[in-house]
Amino acid sequence: MAGRGERRFLKNMPGWRASFNPWILKLPNNPERLAFVLHRVTGILLILILFLHITVTTTPATRGWEFWVEEIRKAQGITPVTVYFFIFAGIAIFHGLNGIRLLLVEFLGCCVGKPEKPKPPYISATLKAPQRTLLYIVFALWIILWMIAGYIIFT
């Protein structure tokens, strides 16, 4: 408790939670927020997976081929290893596809809303711009490519 007469401001910031929970605020007409959260989460997971991936794929050099042959025996049919591959494929495909969209938008400044005279219902131009269509394409392609990856991995 603050002393008599002493006043404290309340720091009212959600912090890192805002990076993980896309519904921390109710934001209508904002699927870009969901894409942001997914891009961030998949990015963090990808770098962790990359550490594991490098460690595993160097085993032919560090431990010899016998160990490798033993390991890849677990990659047939539906096993924990192939399920992990499948999840990894989903993570990588989303990050890659949305990454291409972000490159267009953030790097080239393309597909965002052009300045326009605001008229009712006063929706910011970028929310109606081609980047929104691109975002829907990213979500659709993601599901399709992920299913194809699943088919390849599991059969």
Binding site: L25, L27, P28, N29, N30, E32, R33, A35, F36, V37, H39, R40, L102, V105, E106, G109, V112, G113, P115, P118, Y122, I123, S124, A125, T126, L127, A129
Partner: peptide
């Protein structure tokens, strides 16, 4: 990182998200 939430809540359709890109 282009979450575009700024543009979604702006009452004047200023579109800060688009401007930043």
């Amino acid at each position: 990182h282009f979450a575009a939430s700024c543009s979604a809540v702006c009452p004047k359709a200023v579109d800060p998200g688009g401007a930043i890109q």
